[in-house]
Design a protein around this nucleic acid. Structure first.
Lengths: 207, 207
DNA sequence: TTGATTTACTAAACACTGTTCATTAAGTTT
DNA sequence: AAACTTAATGAACAGTGTTTAGTAAATCAA
């Protein structure tokens, strides 16, 4: 019967889904640190060893969860950074990015900070999880450049700079390094917002 | 005898030194991941439990190692970012920072990426390990601002932006997220350098 | 100097982690 | 009904940070 192999394949996919759904839930509810293979297994009511029948190792599992997380960010971009005006949209992208990081701290960890899921990539051709999000930024910057809004000479260099700066804001904040500033949480967020505004203002051609 | 308590205190300090020296060495030679309490203990030829007589927990130990790492960076600043011209010096600071991150990846982890050593701070007044380095940057930016070189309105906002951008470059690179760019390691480093140059050029008053 | 006390240290255990493997039980095919 | 394949697991391995009870040495008080 050919229907059996199809059903089995379907069940295998469902199980993989169940595993990463459990992982995603635990990421949001309990945080990255408490999301162990054993805990995931307990949540889906299987033995820890079973997970290794569906994922080679933890890295491969986290790689899939990372993909889901990037989908979430891409969705946020399309929903909250959709102004027709490219300059406005660029500002919306930065704000959405920073807000996403603050709101989904453990997902942000997985997407941009934690080493683990990238181990999968080294051997296994290019890393595609972040493509859609990065392209969303690059396209917006490109449109700004086409309109000759900025003093920058290269779209890619500017996109890289914006992303890096925003990531700096989020990650240094998440990891408490802004404690060196001796500001309240509110003041830090205000300073970040001002920094983005200032940057996008200063790099424009008309002062 | 009062000499005994003094000697004991000295021995205690020496032991603490021995522990963090071993930790520092292992950080450089074996990396962060392989630097466990057990491995440190083995290196200094004591039982793992002994370390807990000198440090409350791993966080407290890493906090001290972090302090050493920041001293290293501060030294690098004084040595390699000492131009009289504040704009030149600012560029030197950025370059020194990025080079330090690339060269001492595991120390950089501890200073700016890893969560652990900051757990000590939450209860225990302000975080001072990063003060000297951050002030070095702020002072330089302030001198630029005093000379009215930049379009920025706030010294602190600009300092924050520069630091965040540089941290973004280093940390995204260390964590392999620039794989989304599909560039070689050499090209990535070149793009980072160009980004710094462009930024420091664009924010100046005379275009 | 002897006996009491404090100090320095450690072996062993606890509760975790990711991962592997032999074994069992169920499903499928012949 | 017997043979084979697949799915799942219990138990183990090697590692982690940390705690505690117990030992041996150093110091102090008599």
């Amino acid at each position: 019967m050919m229907g059996i192999t199809e059903r089995k394949e379907r069940e295998k996919k469902e199980m993989r889904r169940q595993i990463i759904d459990a992982a995603l839930t635990m990421f949001n509810e309990e945080g990255y640190e408490k999301t162990s293979i054993r805990n995931i297994a307990e949540k889906i009511e299987y033995s820890p060893a079973t997970i290794y029948l569906y994922y080679k190792d933890k890295d491969e599992l986290l790689y899939e969860v990372q993909k889901e997380a990037f989908d979430k960010l891409a969705t946020a971009f399309r929903k909250k950074a959709n102004s027709k005006d490219p300059l406005d949209r660029l500002y919306q992208i930065c704000k959405t990015y920073v807000n996403f990081g603050n709101k989904h701290q453990d997902l942000y960890d997985l997407m941009f900070i934690i080493k683990s899921p990238m181990n999968v990539v080294t051997e296994k051709e290019p890393w595609t999880n972040g493509d859609a999000c990065f392209n969303y930024l690059v396209n917006c910057v490109q449109e700004c450049m086409d309109n000759k809004l900025f003093q920058y000479t290269s779209t890619n260099v500017l996109a890289l700079s914006i992303w890096s700066m925003c990531h700096g804001f989020v990650s240094l904040n998440l990891r408490c390094r802004f404690k060196v500033l001796e500001l309240s949480e509110f003041e830090v967020n205000k300073a970040i917002e001002t920094s983005i505004e200032e940057f996008l203002r200063v790099i424009q051609k008309d002062h």
